[in-house]
Simulated assay, not measured.
Amino acid sequence: MGKTRAENNVIIMGTTGMVGEGILIQCLKSPEIDSVLVINRKPCGYAHPKLKEIIHQDFLDFSPLENQLAGYNACFFGLGISSVGVDDDTYYKMTYTLTMHVAQTLAKLNEDMTFCYVSGGGTDSTEKGRLKWARVKGKTENDLMILPFEQVFNFRPGFIKPIKTQKYAHKFYKYVNWTFPIGRKIYPNGFCTMEELANAMINTLSHNNERRILEGKDIIALANEPS
């Protein structure tokens, strides 16, 4: 008899945004994922036998949810905001403070968890560069690496081509998707598909005790690993 696969029970954050929604679509399709919990301020609009949704307003206080967050071995964190038009304090709170609160809560409850964080191309690991958003993302990545998760993967995609059926993809993508094959050929490190990003996250669950930063080419390679 072959080795029995361990169950993969995943929490996905950000499913009312493009990245989180794309991750959700792929997880619901994947035979490697047994159950999915999503936590949103408003319903994500998806129903599936594997899917459970919690509606919760205060993402800076997950203490009321703690009795529902144990027993998961992965968190795919696709929640985030743009720095454009946002003051520095708000961006820091919604990027660093919120992410770390969720991560610290989950690390406390799930010692064998893999945490996958979507930061973005250009993130500044030194935390000393010129761009504020890149420094904040870099600090978030660095501090996630310290938490007592089994694994941490920081994903740095550039241009992400959404899945055609996505409801929350930015409208401008339908005007620029035609550039994807050109960009991928010229600069493959800066272009991946939503399926590749999500499948790479799913494939982290077959790894052990890793802490890695994944640029575009790394994401594509991990997505194409044999299951």
Rank of each mutant, 00 (worst) to 15 (best):
L69N: 00
S63M: 11
N209I: 03
G183F: 08
F155W: 06
Y72A: 05
A169R: 15
E66T: 15
A198S: 14
V118P: 00
K108A: 08
C75R: 04
E21T: 13
Y92I: 12
F153E: 10
I182E: 13
H207I: 09
L109C: 04
L60M: 08
V152D: 13
I202Y: 07
K108N: 08
L69S: 01
H170R: 15
L106T: 04
S125F: 09
W133F: 11
Y92N: 13
A169F: 06
T140L: 09
F159L: 13
D112V: 09
R135K: 14
Y117I: 02
M201S: 01
K128R: 15
I12Y: 06
L131V: 10
H101C: 07
K42R: 15
Y173P: 07
E66D: 01
I39N: 07
I54E: 09
I146Y: 03
Y91F: 15
Y46I: 06
R130Y: 07
N142V: 12
S119N: 07
L222V: 05
T165G: 04
G158M: 06
E53P: 03
G138L: 03
A70S: 15
A107D: 07
S83R: 11
F159Q: 09
W133E: 08
D34Q: 04
G78R: 12
R130T: 10
A200G: 14
D34S: 12
Q26N: 14
N142E: 11
G71F: 00
M94Y: 06
N154A: 15
G85R: 02
A200L: 03
Y187F: 12
L214F: 08
I55G: 07
L24F: 05
T90L: 04
T99S: 12
L24V: 05
Y96D: 08
E196M: 04
L98D: 10
I81A: 00
I39L: 14
Y92K: 14
T193N: 11
F180M: 11
V118L: 06
M201I: 10
I25D: 01
T95A: 13
T99N: 02
I33Y: 00
S82D: 08
D58L: 07
L144H: 06
E53L: 03
D218P: 02
S30D: 02
D34E: 07
G14C: 02
E210Y: 08
I160D: 02
G17C: 08
G45V: 11
K3F: 11
V10H: 08
E195R: 14
Y46G: 03
T97N: 13
